[in-house]
Simulated assay, not measured.
Amino acid sequence: MKFVIAPDSFKGSLTAKEVALAIKKGISKIFPTAIFELVPMADGGEGTVQSLVDATDGTIISKEVTGPLGNKVTAKYGLLGNSKTAVIEMAEASGIGYIDKLTANPLITTTFGTGQLIIDALDHNIEEIILGIGGSATNDGGAGMAQAIGIHLLDAKGKELPFGGAALAHLAKIDTSNIDDRLTKVKIVIASDVTNPLTGKNGASAVFGPQKGATPKMVQQLDKSLIHYSEILQKSLNKDVAALPGAGAAGGLGAGLLAFTTAQMKHGIDIVVNYTNLKNKVYGADFVITGEGGIDFQTQYGKTPFGVAQASKSISPNIPVIALAGYVGKDVDVLYQDNVIEAIFSTVSGAKSLERAFEDSQDDIAQTSENIARLIKVLRS
């Protein structure tokens, strides 16, 4: 019997690889001679670097960069096992984890550190960059990132703009003469499921600004700054990116990447399915086991368990897909439609605090997996 085990991380407790090992441990008690394919997964958000590094026997690299508030932080990114692909999570350098209620201020936060990670990856002679852009603390349209890769954003006096989204209101000229020319030779793939435009009522400032500390007044100010920014981009680069789906992702970093590089935007789960070679590993499998920390009706919109199930069914339409989750939420019945996922199991063993649930997660996942294996054995006997 062959099991493909392809979970996401259980946020706050276990990496995707640790989840996969716990599932294998439980199933192995009942099927000790089974074949196991462990495929750590992610959907382009938090955990994507670790999952792809684990899945490809890659390497984690640490780099001191400029954080969203301008201070120095240590960020990590990955080099995949092929030594040709770097995978970066912008949140490592410019993420919301670096701010709190007292320091959150999207008028001044910057993506400069994300640009520094891109340059450091280029120094490793890579040919491709996968860039996950979820969880930002910024609303600068990717301006900081642009400055880090060699672009000068100048005001009417020819002075470099300071960091932050508010400064974009004073942008008068974009000088691309010093951009790192290695970027023209590297493929950049943006991993994002956000489809918001850069500006307007569905734009970066209005939709995502408040969670980064923006007051209603700030939202208006930031949106006006990004509108001006997009106008200068179009005038200087002949690129109209403001209305493109995903331009508003990560406070407009999507727009900056699309304007200043050759980046293309793709669904995060599709990227990970491709780089982990998941579809080939499904051939000949009897069951696919997936999961993540929480599953609900939103899982159908690009989350790992649904993406794993769809990819698996595209290879083997009748293969059963079973999903595990620490939390099973609202309206999960929608995931059973069209037999994409056959069963969903909660892994939490009894009523307990969230802290205790995190502590017990490895053992609970293993126990739930063992119980599933016992049921499979009964049904197959």
Rank of each mutant, 00 (worst) to 15 (best):
V288I: 15
K217R: 12
A285S: 15
I289M: 12
V207H: 01
L131M: 13
E92R: 10
V241K: 11
F306M: 07
T347I: 15
N196M: 11
V207L: 12
S312N: 11
N318D: 15
D240H: 14
L122Y: 02
Q221R: 14
S28I: 02
L153M: 11
V273K: 14
S349C: 12
T215R: 03
P162S: 00
T109H: 11
E359G: 10
N274Y: 09
K281C: 03
H152V: 00
I372F: 06
I133Y: 01
A366R: 04
Q300N: 00
K235S: 11
A75C: 13
M218L: 01
T66N: 04
I151N: 09
I322K: 02
Q221W: 02
E292G: 00
L354W: 02
I30P: 03
I322A: 01
L69S: 10
D333Q: 13
I289H: 00
D338W: 01
G213E: 01
Q147E: 07
S205K: 11
D193P: 11
N202S: 14
A42K: 02
N339I: 01
N277W: 00
I129S: 07
N238C: 02
D360V: 10
L226C: 00
P7N: 04
I295W: 00
G142M: 10
V65I: 14
G293T: 09
N339G: 03
V348D: 04
P32I: 03
N280G: 15
T85Q: 07
V272Q: 13
K101M: 14
G158W: 11
K185L: 08
F345K: 08
A16D: 02
I315P: 07
A373V: 09
I30E: 11
E18N: 01
E359M: 13
A121H: 07
D100H: 11
I30A: 03
G12P: 09
S349L: 13
G58D: 06
K29M: 05
S192V: 06
G254K: 06
S361L: 13
V53M: 11
A242V: 08
T304A: 09
G47P: 06
S361C: 15
L335A: 04
V321L: 05
A91V: 12
K377Q: 14
L38E: 13
S236H: 15
D180C: 09
K76A: 10
V194T: 12
E92D: 04
V4G: 08
L102S: 11
Q310D: 03
V186L: 05
A20R: 06
A255I: 09
V273W: 03
G135H: 04
S346R: 11
N178D: 12
V334R: 06
K303Q: 12
L171I: 15
I96F: 00
Q50V: 06
F36V: 09
E18Y: 01
E64N: 14
I35R: 15
K217F: 07
T85W: 02
A249K: 08
I179E: 08
S94C: 11
G115L: 07
G150K: 14
I126M: 06
G254M: 13
Y98F: 15
G164L: 13
G141A: 08
E292W: 07
G113W: 13
L379M: 10
V189I: 15
P106H: 11
L122D: 03
L171A: 01
L222F: 07
A20K: 00
A6N: 07
F345P: 03
I174T: 10
L168V: 13
A214F: 06
E359S: 14
V49I: 10
A121K: 07
L253W: 10
A250K: 08
N274I: 00
K101P: 02
D181W: 08
G268D: 02
P320G: 09
